[in-house]
């Protein structure tokens, strides 16, 4: 085994040796797939809001499951700040670029795994309950975007926590931002014009089939907007790691 994989293997070992870390992705998949299944079997055939855009019903559980994804992104580095293990981590991997790369690879890998399982679970639940027509235009794009949304969201939260260097601050800032703030803010006209460019709003638009006339970009572009935010956060996180004392 080559030394280049050591930082990633250390991150994997950190993940597997702490229950609060390895249970979180399981929770994300269970929430997303479970709540979609419950909603589709219970209301999928009677509630138009779940079926007008079939992806709205399919991804209904994601609204809940993504809470766990955000938490995992924060915890992956936040618990190093809160417990103080960051000093040991950096003593073991003093090259900040290698350390950062190990964290990002684990975060992206876990996010991708969560995305694949989540979308597979939600698709299966939808197919078994209300059925789905994958021939409808944009269906495969919406499914692929659903998978990619997870690693992007996870890496975004991981990187913002790296910038904040504080788990509590990250939880305090990110959870209301992602789960209340942008939804509530997008209800205010004018503000909505800006909020649609926020990473979670933009990313989620790529998961829809129907067009929203008030949104100024296409579905696929929405995911690119989110990817751009994530790239910026990654760069800012690395900058913080390299310039600040640990």
């Amino acid at each position: 085994m080559s030394a280049t994989t050591y930082p990633l293997r250390a991150e994997w070992a950190k993940f597997t040796t702490l229950r609060s870390l390895w249970t979180t992705p399981l929770l994300a998949v269970a929430l997303s797939a479970g709540i979609t299944a419950a909603a589709q079997f219970a209301y999928g055939k009677v509630d138009d809001s779940l079926t007008d855009d079939p992806m709205l019903g399919l991804y209904y559980g994601l609204n809940f499951g993504q809470v766990a994804v955000v938490c995992l992104g924060i915890l992956l580095i936040g618990q190093e700040y809160s417990s103080g293990t960051l000093a040991t981590s950096l003593a073991a991997v003093p090259d900040r670029i290698r350390f950062h790369r190990g964290k990002l690879l684990l975060g992206a890998g876990l996010g991708l795994a969560i995305g694949l399982l989540t979308v597979a679970g939600q698709l299966a639940a939808t197919a078994a309950s209300v059925g789905i027509d994958l021939a409808a235009p944009g269906s495969y794009r919406a499914l692929a975007a659903g998978v990619l949304y997870h690693p992007l969201l996870l890496v975004l939260c991981l990187s913002l926590t790296t910038v904040l260097r504080n788990q509590t601050a990250a939880l305090g800032l990110l959870s209301p931002m992602v789960f209340l703030g942008t939804t509530a803010l997008s209800a205010i006209p004018g503000i909505r014009e800006v909020v649609q460019f926020f990473p979670d709003r933009a990313g989620l638009y790529a998961l829809r089939l129907q067009d929203d006339p008030e949104i100024h970009y296409g579905h696929g572009t929405g995911l690119l907007v989110m990817a751009l935010w994530t790239a910026l956060a990654v760069a800012a996180g690395l900058r913080t790691l390299r310039t600040r004392d640990a």
């Binding site: 050591y6 293997r9 250390a10 070992a13 040796t17 702490l18 293990t85 073991a92």
Partner: peptide
């Protein structure tokens, strides 16, 4: 500066993994 949720062996395991 250790995470209380890890076992002693678990704590050493990730540090050992960083150097193979």
């Amino acid at each position: 500066a250790v995470h209380g949720g890890r076992t002693a062996a678990g704590h050493l395991r990730w540090i050992a993994a960083s150097h193979g």
